[in-house]
Amino acid sequence: MKRILVNEDVCSGCRACEVACVAWHDGRFGTATARIRVTKIEPLGVDHPHVCGLCRRAPCVAACPTEALYRDETTGAVLLRPDDCIGCSACVDACPFGMAALHPETGLALICDLCGGDPACVKRCATGAIVYDYAGARAREKREKQAVKLSEETLEQQRKNDV
C-alpha cells in the first residue's frame, strides 16, 4: 500500500500541496479546506508537510458514531459516506496527528482520500518533499545515504592514512 511520504528537508514551504488539494476537491483555490497541511516556523526556516497516517487501526474510523468513515481497501485511505456524517467532530478529536477536520462550508469530516489513488498534492510538489510510494521507500533511501556517508568517511580516513 502506497502512502504519502514526507521529506521536510527539501520542503520549500510553498503550500502548493494545500492549494492543489483544495482545487481537486472543491474546484476552487484556497487553503482552508486542505487535507494536507504545512507547518511553517519562519524564524527557524522550518517547513513540514503533515499528511494522513493511513492508520491500519484508524482511530478516526473507530471513533465515528455513525459509521460514516470507512477504509478503502484498494488505496487504504479513510473515506466518508457524506449522508451518514453528522459533523460531530469525533474523528477530529480522535486523530493523533491533527489531520482530521470539519469542512468549513459543509461541516462534514475532512480527511485525506488520496484523490482515489493519485494524490493531487504530490503531483504539484516541485521539490520532492512529498512522494506517493510504499512505506519504506524512504527508509531504503536513508539507508543508502547512510552507507554512502560511511564509505566516504572510510575513504577519507584511508586518504589521511595514505598521507
Partner: peptide, 19 residues
C-alpha cells in the same frame, strides 16, 4: 544554505534559508 524556499504555490524555490 540550509535549503531552498519558495513563495506561495511557486514551482521555483528561488529563495534560500541560511544559517
Amino acid at each position: 544554505k540550509i535549503k531552498s524556499k519558495a513563495c506561495f504555490a511557486c514551482t521555483i524555490p528561488c529563495s534560500r534559508f541560511l544559517v
